[in-house]
Nucleic acid binder design. Structure first.
Length: 276
DNA sequence: CCGGCATGGCAAA
DNA sequence: TTGCCCTGCCGGA
């Protein structure tokens, strides 16, 4: 479910629900019993996101490091009217106070770590467009000169943190860039524009809780077409629209597996160009 | 009921 | 590059 915008949103949501007061922690599924026991009754002191990594701080050099992977997710609910409901399915971690509860299921990572380990995780990540301290030049240095495709580079969390398959496809479409273009053929001005756009798009995604990338002039209302309903919930140009018409030029959107992920693009709006 | 699929990432070869 | 992990959902038998 999650690209970086969701993780940042979850940091805020956890902080809102549990910040600054003691929280009960448990692992109904039984796979995080020791960690839950250790933080049980402690106060949630901080909730931070870097890229797709979520860190819940419980003081005393103790962080819960969460990475949702492909299918992980949080469910929030209220306990104001009574006890939290019995966990449904496999709940790795439940957090709970007298007002709220949150269930974490299916994470790739859910582990108790130290300050130093948290810093090490952040250190292996590229700049996150959602963080004020991000340095886009660090990403540019890895892109320029690279023979790897720009599509693969955008998904590489060491290059750029928080961008996933949807933002990757959409930002390349919005800038008319062929996904197969090698990083070394990307122009500096193109990178600057891509980064600036990611900052805007992802920030909007945090607020909306979904990914919308379609410009006003191409929206369903403006184009006289039905709005698109899909798992990720937003209006997009190419992501998972293979075989459908491009919203701008009506060419069939193409898809291809690229580094074991599905890539989507419009061959007309994102034409190949000579690569030096 | 089962198989396939998904907005991810790791280790191993 | 491949295989594997994590879970829920949906479509076809």
């Amino acid at each position: 479910m999650p690209e970086g915008h969701i993780i940042h949103r979850l940091a805020a949501e956890n902080h809102r629900a549990f910040g600054g007061r003691p929280v009960r922690a448990s692992s109904p599924q039984g796979r995080f019993v020791d960690g839950a026991k250790l933080i049980d009754g402690r106060e949630l002191a901080a909730a931070e996101a870097t890229g797709k990594h979520l860190f819940l701080g419980f003081g005393e050099d103790a962080w819960v490091h969460v990475h949702l992977g492909l299918y992980g997710g949080f469910t929030f609910g209220d306990t104001g009217d009574g006890p939290a409901p019995e966990p449904v399915g496999l709940v790795r971690l439940r957090l709970e106070n007298d007002e709220h509860y949150a269930d974490l299921r299916g994470p790739n990572t859910c582990a108790l770590i130290t300050d130093a380990e948290k810093a090490a995780v952040a250190a292996r990540l590229g700049p996150d467009p959602l963080r004020a301290d991000a340095d886009p030049d660090a990403a540019w240095r890895r892109i320029t000169g690279s023979r790897t495709t720009i599509a693969a580079l955008l998904m590489d969390q060491k290059v750029l943190a928080g961008v996933g398959n949807v933002y990757r496809a959409e930002v390349l479409f919005r800038h008319g860039i062929d996904p197969q273009l090698p990083g070394r053929s990307l122009r500096r001005a193109e990178w600057d524009a891509l980064w600036a756009d990611l900052v805007v798009l992802m920030r909007e995604g945090v607020g909306a809780g979904r990914i919308d990338t379609v410009r006003p002039e191409h929206t369903p209302e403006a184009m006289n077409r039905p709005p698109r309903v899909d798992d990720h919930g937003g209006e997009v140009y190419v992501y998972r629209r293979a075989g459908q018409r491009c919203l701008v030029c009506a060419t069939d959107v193409r898809t291809e597996e690229h580094a074991s992920r599905n890539l989507f693009w419009c061959p007309t709006c994102q034409p190949p160009r000579p690569t030096a």
